[in-house]
């Protein structure tokens, strides 16, 4: 991705330190990178390196301790135009699928009626046609996470934050959902920041992979993944695919 384009959002020396009475825990140490509009960026790192913390800071759920988060694009409202897919589906069990998808609309006080059609389209996009009136406890884990993706997209966010969204699913469901995610990304042209500890998953999905080291986390690498789009499973046989994965292994010091 060329740097002469204007970034959507820019992180400059962002740090997060948790302070208790007599200890300091550095959850995220000095991370700087830009995210460009329409880009698919993955953040890879070992457990506890602050990947989730990074997303929560961007979503305004946690304050950062130092550094800056700069919104570069003037028509990006970071308070309203962010979608978040959490590790767990976090569906409201008392709401039907359609009403779960519409939750952000209600919170943002947008006219609900005008969005019902869009909610149905999104459910269809994530492959849940005909499940509008089911309750979450009638769905499988994979289906629940699909609902939560539709929910994160309902208010048409420019930036989609995804925190290991398929981490809790079985490997086959996970591969299937990765394919669907690429499809959704191509359809919706969202900017996606995707946190994972799946190295192959990151290469397969991304335009760029940010590699974080273990705590105290530093950026080990920022890797442009120059593989053809749209991607299919064949891309995994590309020698470049293996080289990118190896770079990430090196960045993570798994040798």
């Amino acid at each position: 991705m060329s740097d002469d384009r204007k970034a959507l959002i820019s992180l400059r020396n962002v740090k997060k330190v948790y302070r208790t009475r007599d200890t300091e825990l550095e959850a995220l140490g000095d991370v700087s990178f830009d995210v460009f509009p329409g880009e698919f960026v993955s953040v890879v790192g070992p457990s506890g390196c602050g990947k989730t913390t990074l997303l929560k800071i961007l979503a305004g759920l946690l304050p950062h301790s130092s550094g800056e988060i700069v919104v570069e694009s003037e028509n990006f409202d970071i308070e309203r135009e962010v979608g978040f897919v959490f590790q767990k589906p976090l569906l409201l069990h008392w709401r039907k699928v359609l009403d779960n998808v519409l939750l952000p609309i209600e919170i943002l006080k947008i006219n609900r009626k005008s969005m019902v059609g869009r909610a149905r389209e999104l459910l269809s996009l994530v492959g849940l046609d005909g499940f509008e009136d089911r309750y979450p406890n009638e769905l499988s884990g994979g289906m629940q996470q699909r609902v939560s993706i539709a929910r994160a997209l309902i208010h048409d966010p420019k930036l989609l934050l995804m925190d290991e969204p398929f981490g809790a699913l079985d490997a086959i469901t996970r591969e299937r959902l990765n394919m669907e995610l690429l499809h959704i990304w191509e359809e919706t042209k969202k900017t996606i920041l995707f946190v994972t500890h799946g190295i192959n998953e990151a290469v397969f999905l991304s335009d760029r992979v940010i590699v974080l080291t273990a705590r105290p986390s530093r950026m080990a690498a920022s890797l442009d993944i120059d593989l053809p789009r749209p991607r299919s499973q064949e891309v995994r046989t590309d020698p470049a695919f293996g080289r990118y994965a190896l770079e990430i292994y090196k960045g993570l010091e798994i040798t």
């Binding site: 305004g60 309203r80 962010v82 978040f84 976090l90």
Partner: peptide, 10 residues
Amino acid sequence: ELLDLVKYLH
């Protein structure tokens, strides 16, 4: 965690 759902949309 459910509270985050409302919080991140302010």
